[in-house]
Design a protein around this nucleic acid. Structure first.
Lengths: 361, 361
DNA sequence: TTGAAAGCGCTAACAC
DNA sequence: GTGTTAGCGCTTTCAA
């Protein structure tokens, strides 16, 4: 009793202070802090009369409920963690925007982490997010750290994997049909009459990269084309890697007449290497990229590419997470979105090829 | 006393539960929670013996201090808010990476918000961040909402403005010497012999855009070139805007022979318009962009551009904030970083121009 | 419908 | 050097 009085006196003294808390609002509106809480959260009925008084007081005092206190008490926070493997890749950037859009509308905040493809950093981030008591995490797994993830899931944090398949069942995921996309891109080249088709692939272990490679191989087989291992270069999904890979291909005795590049950044590097050799696209070498990018239409010639629904990946992942937060018992879902081939001019057209072969004979 | 006992008993029951707290660790290592706290934060001396026991227990229990509780108690969080105006712009993406790099090393987490250049969203984000009790905020101001910022600063949250000058003194800021950069880019064109030089400018109100316009005008004056208002198009810093602006320029009776574009996205649009008209760069039109981008070297011809130290802007802003957090009384700093002209081939060279004029005469 | 009161997990002032 | 204890601001029983 007495303690309580003291507490309130203290609060009163602090009224002129900068930070307003629930006590100030309660005092100003002449109700208990419980009522203030109820009004602010809108989760219980409070008479219009009191509701009004509280709201007015809240505005007057510029009161914003303290989130730390709230999540400490509720043991759940209105915060979602996001771990991206490469923030400088426009693909992930669109994904983030998708996530942010949905989360913003639902009143969630977003903790952002960049793993830089480094499993150590990834783990640190995962730990931090857990300490931060986030409600859930959306991430691009760099590798499938099973035990650690299970730990997280058991501690009540929901996980959604994006871009790369998580390699486990107890998790929602949003990925893209990489195999089909790569198949379509390669088929596009085959249908235009190209036979010596090269591939600049990503890292051998990454799931996206493996699936794209499979799609490529399947398409080659499907179109009865020779699969020359020399024309498949494994690289690192980075610009410099794509540059070196393309150089390697061009230095071959029999370089490819067309090439598919397994992600956007490597495409940039490949393009650079092609230009440095003064090769004409598509006449001397055709190129199709995985990931459509803003600059694809600004290139000369414009770049034919497999478009991934990056923004949708983000929104879908966010929605999946929100749904799971509402109903944690829901069965896990693996959403696979479709890619789309954007035909532009970097692969030429059938007509050109036919004409060329006539001229050449 | 009795209460305490009950509490500890409760804790004991929960031991098998998923979430471990400071009590579990204290119990397992046979010390008080205060000692555990001291060991975890490393802020006070604890004997090696106990330190060890606590650390071992923490590992065993997979204990992670709860951040909400910590920041509630300390009334400061180890969290920094970041509000970016356009996450899909690679420039900001590099800035974020810079920020993240520094903050990660200092054990801070990063709350991310995307304002989409929308002042309303910006304000919501600012409110949320304040409720979240972040230690500080790094942001790109969409407009200078003076009273609101003052409010924030008064409530103890430190602000650092980036990219755009905040238009007020009571704030740290990191910007770029836009005027000088634009001057150099324009001078580069002038020195190569171009006379009819156009400008695709950003929004009339944005500080970056204004400063770049000024630099452009100064350079024109400096090189005794005619400033034709028809050659200055105000646009919106977006790709489609740049596209339309370039179209407008090209439809002029006397289109410019060279053009400077005031940001990266608009450059992309301008390039697209140029290609659609089948104009040769740089022979028929030279182009220099503001913001150097990964794709600049992959273009044919490669793009001459003003490089902004985006990553450094991020690291500098983060450091500024960290320093202020240590010493809130420090005087405010306005850091202005330099740009750098990256000369490539989209503006041709003097030799070419001379040869051309000889041929044409 | 509203209020009183008990903590959420942690830190820091104070004891010893 | 280590332990005890009082809250940080909030939500949520439980009573009234």
């Amino acid at each position: 009793m007495i303690e309580k009085k003291l507490k309130q006196q203290k609060q009163e003294q602090d009224q002129t202070e900068e930070k307003n808390n629930i006590f100030q609002v309660a005092k100003l509106s002449g109700v208990s802090i419980a009522t203030v809480s109820r009004v602010m959260s809108g989760k219980a009925y409070v008479s219009p009369e009191l509701t009004n008084r509280v709201k007015k007081a809240a505005v007057t005092l510029d009161y914003h409920p303290n989130r730390s206190a709230s999540s400490l008490r509720k043991r759940v926070s209105k915060t979602i963690g996001v771990i991206i493997s490469d923030i400088e890749n426009p693909f992930f950037t669109s994904v983030i925007r998708g996530i942010e859009t949905i989360l913003y509308d639902s009143g969630y905040s977003l903790f952002f982490c960049n793993s830089d493809e480094d499993p150590k950093r990834e783990k640190t981030h995962l730990s931090n997010l857990r300490a931060e008591d986030v409600a859930g995490i959306i991430w691009t797994p760099t590798k499938y750290n099973n035990e650690f993830c299970k730990n997280l899931v058991e501690s009540g944090i929901q996980l959604v994997a994006i871009d790369r398949s998580p390699g486990m069942d107890h998790m929602d995921s949003v990925t893209v049909n990489n195999r089909k996309g790569a198949f379509e891109a390669t088929s596009h080249l085959a249908q235009l009459g190209y036979q010596r088709i090269g591939l600049i692939s990503g890292p051998k272990q990454t799931s996206t990269s493996i699936e794209r490679l499979e799609g490529f191989k399947e398409a080659m087989l499907y179109h009865n084309l020779v699969l020359d291992q020399k024309l498949i270069i494994y690289s690192d999904f980075r610009q410099t890697g794509g540059y070196r890979a393309m150089q390697t291909l061009l230095e071959l005795e029999l370089p490819p007449k067309a090439v598919m590049v397994s992600n956007n950044l490597m495409t940039l590097g490949a393009l650079q290497a092609i230009h440095e050799c003064n090769l004409k696209i598509p006449d001397q070498i055709a190129i199709v990229g995985f990931d459509d990018m803003p600059w694809a239409t600004s290139l000369q010639p414009s770049l034919t590419a497999i478009a991934q629904p990056a923004f949708d990946i983000g929104t879908t992942a966010a929605q999946l997470l929100l749904e799971r937060l509402k109903d944690p018992t829901r069965s896990y879902r693996q959403v696979v979105l479709d890619t789309k081939l954007m035909v532009r001019t970097s692969c030429g057209s059938k007509k050109n090829l036919v004409i060329k072969s006539i001229i050449e004979t």
